[in-house]
């Protein structure tokens, strides 16, 4: 039925990817227990708190990234938008002398525009989101470098620096926000029709369209969402290090993909959740943390991460095949 206009999938490779919904919980709990008993350093408040703080920053980026994956689309530009937004907010703050909150707001708005361009091109011209966002990744990496060049390693002070350091009680607000966001998103995605519809659109956008859902608009919105959350995460990260780092966000897209896929998202859409992606991030952080305490060569960590990703996906595919045969 070639006359239908829906996007066709180029190949059936990977169609079966569906890291079973609960595996990530078992993996994470297993690793948690292992590290608790195998090391002296892991299970301490300070250590767990610092892991949580690390995650709470990347987490913002993975919110939109996961929502977009549910649409069956991918945002390769998430890392450079992350880095760009930190630099831009810093530029507006330091060079243009804007109050921090205005700089923050403008930055997020601009990121929304970036996401909108991604979304418009992908949805209107029916092209691969991976390709478009690789283009955007390159563009934003360029802008980031330009801004960093302008900033010449100026330190962000005042409101910018204290933004990330704000605490509620004794806890950084980012951690509290992380917990709240996870709970809220989990409930909304499971129960609220406004959110559940994302899964329907992701599974089959044409079907959703037939039943009156504005699929294209939702798909575009998620591109915006991805850029916006990456932008927010980027500003928080810049606030943490208090300057615009050239390395900010570099390779973040790979971390996001790994965490989200471990958390059960599929590149073909219709699957995934914010909670499970966050647990995926936590798992990755624990792996790094654990290996540091075993004083494993940092480069072996990469090997191990790659191995985990591939084994997890392979096991899942073999498992799904068996259950279908």
């Amino acid at each position: 039925m070639s006359e239908y206009t829906g996007r066709t999938l180029s190949s059936d490779v990977g169609r079966r990817i569906n890291f079973s919904s609960y595996s990530i919980y078992f993996l994470a709990i297993g690793l948690f227990l292992f590290l608790t008993f195998a090391t002296n350093t892991f299970f301490s408040f300070e250590n767990l708190y610092s892991i949580s703080l690390d995650i709470s920053i990347q987490f913002y980026a993975i919110v939109g990234f996961t929502l977009l994956l549910i649409m069956g689309e991918i945002d390769m530009s998430v890392g450079s938008v992350f880095g760009f937004s930190g630099a831009l907010a810093g530029y507006l703050f330091v060079k243009s002398g804007l109050p921090f909150w205005i700089a923050f707001l403008l930055t997020v708005l601009l990121c929304a525009g970036v996401g909108l361009i991604n979304g418009l091109v992908v949805v209107k011209f029916h092209v691969s989101s991976m390709m478009v966002t690789i283009g955007m990744m390159t563009v934003m990496a360029g802008f980031k470098a330009v801004l960093i060049g302008q900033l010449s390693s100026r330190v962000f002070t005042g409101d910018f620096r204290s933004f990330m350091r704000m605490k509620l009680g004794d806890i950084h607000w980012t951690i509290i926000a992380l917990v709240i966001l996870i709970v809220v998103f989990e409930i909304l995605l499971l129960r609220s029709y406004k959110f559940k519809v994302f899964y329907f659109v992701g599974q089959n956008s044409e079907t959703a369209k037939i039943y009156g859902i504005k699929s294209d608009r939702i798909r575009m919105m998620m591109f915006v969402m991805s850029a916006v959350t990456a932008g927010i995460g980027g500003v928080i990260a810049a606030s943490r290090v208090a300057h615009a780092a050239a390395t900010a966000g570099v390779g973040l897209e790979f971390t996001m993909i790994t965490a989200a896929v471990l958390g059960g998202a599929s590149l073909f859409g219709g699957k995934g959740s914010i909670l499970r992606s966050a647990v995926g991030l936590f798992f990755l952080a624990m792996v790094t943390n654990g290996m540091v305490s075993f004083s494993v060569d940092p480069y072996i960590q990469q090997v191990v991460l790659g191995l985990i990703l591939i084994i997890a996906v392979t096991v899942d595919i073999v498992f799904t095949r068996k259950s279908r045969a």
Binding site: V197, F200, N204, E206, T207, I210
Partner: peptide, 19 residues
């Protein structure tokens, strides 16, 4: 091709046009 969510429950399918 379309008109059904093949991997969602029948309940989800019924809910779709009248969410």
């Amino acid at each position: 091709y379309a008109g059904l969510l093949h991997d969602s429950s029948v309940m989800d399918n019924i809910s779709l046009p009248q969410l």
